[in-house]
Design a binder for these strands. Sequence first.
DNA 1: GTGGCCTGAGAAAAGCTTTTACCAACTCTT
DNA 2: AAGAGTTGGTAAAAGCTTTTCTCAGGCCAC
Lengths: 325, 325
Amino acid sequence: MASAAGVSISTASKALNDTGRMGAETRERVKRIAGEIGYRPNALARGLLSKRSFTIGLLTNDTYGRFTLPVMAGISDALVDHGVSVFLCAIEDDPDLAQIHVDAMLDKQVDGIIATGKRLDRRLPVDLSNLHVPVVYAFTEGTQNSVTFRSDDEQGARLAVEWLVKIGRRRIAHITGPEDFFSVRERAGAYHQVAGHREPVLYGVWSESWGHEAIEELWKRPGEKPDALFCGNDQIARGAVDALRERGIKVPLDVSVIGFDNWEIVAAQTRPPLTTVDMELKELGRQAGLTVLALAEGRPVEPGVRKLPCRLIVRQSCGGKPPRE
Amino acid sequence: MASAAGVSISTASKALNDTGRMGAETRERVKRIAGEIGYRPNALARGLLSKRSFTIGLLTNDTYGRFTLPVMAGISDALVDHGVSVFLCAIEDDPDLAQIHVDAMLDKQVDGIIATGKRLDRRLPVDLSNLHVPVVYAFTEGTQNSVTFRSDDEQGARLAVEWLVKIGRRRIAHITGPEDFFSVRERAGAYHQVAGHREPVLYGVWSESWGHEAIEELWKRPGEKPDALFCGNDQIARGAVDALRERGIKVPLDVSVIGFDNWEIVAAQTRPPLTTVDMELKELGRQAGLTVLALAEGRPVEPGVRKLPCRLIVRQSCGGKPPRE
DNA sequence: GTGGCCTGAGAAAAGCTTTTACCAACTCTT
DNA sequence: AAGAGTTGGTAAAAGCTTTTCTCAGGCCAC
């Protein structure tokens, strides 16, 4: 205990927290000695009193996923400056496990909870709506009157298709995932708007092989072939690029291809590297973290859905312009 | 407070913890009422007294990585049964950030720390050797007298090469990552032992494009071509498979290919899906979690390096035998 | 009938920090 | 020089559990 080395016990607290009245040189001395003996206050005791644990819980059902990781990095990044740590709880769509983790977080007096997932239009398998701690949703469906952060898929898709139009492509096809995904419908909607229905939308699954198949299907059809592909994710785009290469079609010379997600490991390793749409998930996580912190501190936050803009990452699969950055 | 609804205050504690002496019906009544009002003890107060926070810290420098995620899932999986939660701290090779996180964990009285990384032969950029809490290393280089868990890369490589031999391959080449990786040398060593130096080892980088290049290099050489490839990771294997296909060489008919890591997203999406070596990282995490818990509870644990066996995942890139599981 | 023992339950302390209240001593002011 | 105000610091309470100690009452035995 710092008081042993210093002077008293409550004086030490006031010295270290720059609070209360005391002699300047006493304060300095206590601080110095505390530093020397490496004294660090016990956060448990502090939390017990202040009702703040400087801890938040992150609940995700996307264990192996590419979505949660960037979101998490953003949250952690935003909160470390405020001395807040993050409990990560992976709940594989298991309601019981989820409840266990939520209870454990509540027992540990988390200041707030962030729920995140792998899909915008699905709820986590646990009800967080009537907790006595603030809850923020990030990249997952929230409840009524909650704060929810999500990517603006419509704007992202528009970015992609407008880029293709801008570099001179006219017959743009859209190969994407299952139609029951909200994101898929939003992106397809934007595609229709911008591209003007010139080509049909091909709905499928989120895999490379579907990208392959879709190309076969498109090139089997009579008439003019597409000169650009807007793909629902990078894996589909990669499958498509590979299929085109096998047919001797040059990317980006003959066909421009654009993906979605900016999943580096796929997008950057494709030949040629994929131009794609980044959902800025780290920024999304950062904002979610800051928001849950604000709520925990009692600052008012307007409920509602916040759509964060996507960003186009230009690599080499579109041509038209040399890659930047 | 449960005591308000029940009878006293310390009696409640004893009732809920099945400790102390008291009437059976009193105990039942307290428990029932506690259940009804949804009483849950404050873990902070409990931790303050018991010196156990039921919290451990997980430190990783592999933010986006495929290694930390399974390890983490294993840890979480093993500890949730014991009521222990996990603080995840991502420290991007930044010593200052690492120190901040370690200090925060210590302040929060974690019962132990698990350090994990993306490479067996590198240390985290922070010294954890003289903490007053137990530290366990998982998939990263530990300190003297510490407990370290790692995959047995030699055994894994042997598994792979022996499989190739068993299905009748004789000219097995090894395309792998940078030679300064410990894992690379271990795997190469096992390859040499089992394959008997029939083919040279090609050292490069951990990317698909290196897999491509390596194939070009191998097929440019005069003389007999390899009939099997043992690749240092799944990405290299994928690059190699793609390069072979482009040359009209059939996998697995003409050449068997085997990868390393069992990174589903690469291995399962390759055409044909890759046979590969799984390092059982989730099991590794599970054991690390259980071990740090044992240390936290004062149970003795023998220091040293524990090598966990790898497992061969048979898919379709080798032929020889139909895929299982 | 009384002393000893057992049972059931409550009182109190401890764990560590922060905050409020308080006190002793000192310095002005008049 | 005495009262008022200021200053520097301490004592104590609160926050919530758990654990140990104590106590009151009932029962049995002698």
